[in-house]
Design a protein around this nucleic acid. Structure first.
Lengths: 250, 250
DNA sequence: AGCCGATCTGAGCGGAACTTGAGGATCACG
DNA sequence: CGTGATCCTCAAGTTCCGCTCAGATCGGCT
């Protein structure tokens, strides 16, 4: 059974490869998100039955990798990370991860969870992984359409000029910007930006979205998806869907 | 989306039913393992999409209930329990549970995990034998006949052209596309795309099907099955790569 | 305490989405 | 070939939902 391990720490990876190998897994080790996405492109080998994804050092990189994986493949993903906070858990699961395991974990439990998701695993789809060059890799401060988001400093600038945002506005924007194009449902937004489990009573969300739009002054950036939620428009509205260049028929 | 809650504490159950209901689940509450197993017997209703199983039931051991459920059905099971020890976790997962959540849990995380396992869900057939690969459930972006459905972005494109769809239209298409070729009965469609057991009085469904056909401009894609419901034609009608196995005649 | 910005709530508006009904087309079946 | 049931389309009516504004409440700071 093939398994893809995404982990940048060599020592951790080596240990996992050893243990997993002893339990009958054929492990491919990817050291970066880019390498992982490459590895997932169908190449005639058996498809991977499960992906172990470490949300490693580059801050949000792991979430983006998960989103990209999910956009192109149905392979089960288990996030493994030291980040135990609820926000991260919920966000990871909402991005399409099948499980979320925090360090330190028990090896036996991890194995059991791997088997659980593999057992449920998807039939390999014919869909190719996203072409690496159509979607530019966004790491560190997100930059797209002239908008720059510095998560550490909590600063946002549009075309160079600084835009002061309040907490909620920033959290909201930061959430949506983690996966431009992906629709975030209202409940998801509430459980990640507000205290989880809280139901927005009034028009709270709309008001914050409104002021966010006003301050950013980028019409069409934040798009409402009626009855569902909101999303960020990543590219200019020219070609929204990525053109399928050379699609490998299976 | 139907959900089976197995919980003997009335107060806990009531709270969960309320929250889950508000999040779009149609919850059936079973107070014992026996009742749960009864509820899971196929009865013509839509199958449950996920089971929330509280260990520590009065009449039976929760593990045994899980094992029996798994013996008769492929429905995803989430164990919810106060027993946090590693042994129990591993045991539960190895018995076929899809996830194992310990109390106290965060409501937002539980919801995210419910969605995660439901997303990965079981075969929609009511057949007792859980054969995961007999019914090909499409994951990731569905691509067939030039039509591409991106669930998390809620985008549909036909031959590269982006086709804007409304909520109902998209949900309808996404549902039918889950298993191309399989006939979805009207009641089934209503309970999945709409809320609760609502018997569409007027010509609602036909209208939405109509606009879906118009927008997609793929004649013959959505096929009406007289007196039963609708289905998607997977491949061009000439050479059927695979004969549709499960035919739902009444 | 008092101030001030941030957040929340409620009402009203406008438009998109959904529903309904009627009439025509099509199909299954005798 | 006739007939009833089912489905499709069109054009209303109606509901729902997101947007905005204005005021109330919350919460941090001095």
């Amino acid at each position: 059974m093939r398994l893809l391990l995404v982990e940048d720490d060599e020592r951790v990876a080596a240990a996992l490869v050893a243990v997993l190998g002893r339990h009958g897994f054929q492990v491919r080790h990817a050291r970066s998100g880019h390498e992982a996405l490459d590895a997932l492109v169908p190449d005639g080998h058996d498809p991977y039955r499960v992906v172990l994804l470490d949300l490693g050092l580059p801050d949000r990189d792991g979430f983006e990798v998960c989103s990209r994986i999910r956009a192109g493949s149905g392979v089960p993903v288990i996030m493994v990370t030291a980040r135990a906070d609820i926000r991260s858990r919920i966000h990871g699961l909402n991005l399409g991860a099948d499980d979320y395991v925090t360090k330190p974990y028990d090896m036996g439990e991890l194995l059991a969870r791997i088997h659980a998701v593999a057992r449920r695993g998807a039939a390999p789809t014919a869909a190719a992984a996203p072409a690496p060059d159509t979607v530019p890799q966004q790491r560190g401060p997100l930059e797209s359409r002239g908008i720059r988001i510095d998560r550490e400093r909590r600063r946002v600038s549009v075309d160079g000029r600084d835009v002061p945002l309040t907490r909620k506005e920033f959290d909201l924007l930061a959430l949506l910007a983690q996966s431009p194009g992906v629709v975030y449902r209202r409940e998801q937004i509430f459980s990640e930006v507000w205290r989880s489990g809280w139901e927005g009573n009034g028009r709270t969300l709309e008001v914050h979205i409104g002021s966010l739009r006003t301050k950013l002054a980028l019409p069409g950036l934040v798009e409402a998806v009626r009855g569902v939620g909101y999303r960020l428009i990543a590219e200019s509205p020219a070609s929204a869907g990525q053109p399928p260049p050379a699609r490998a028929e299976r």
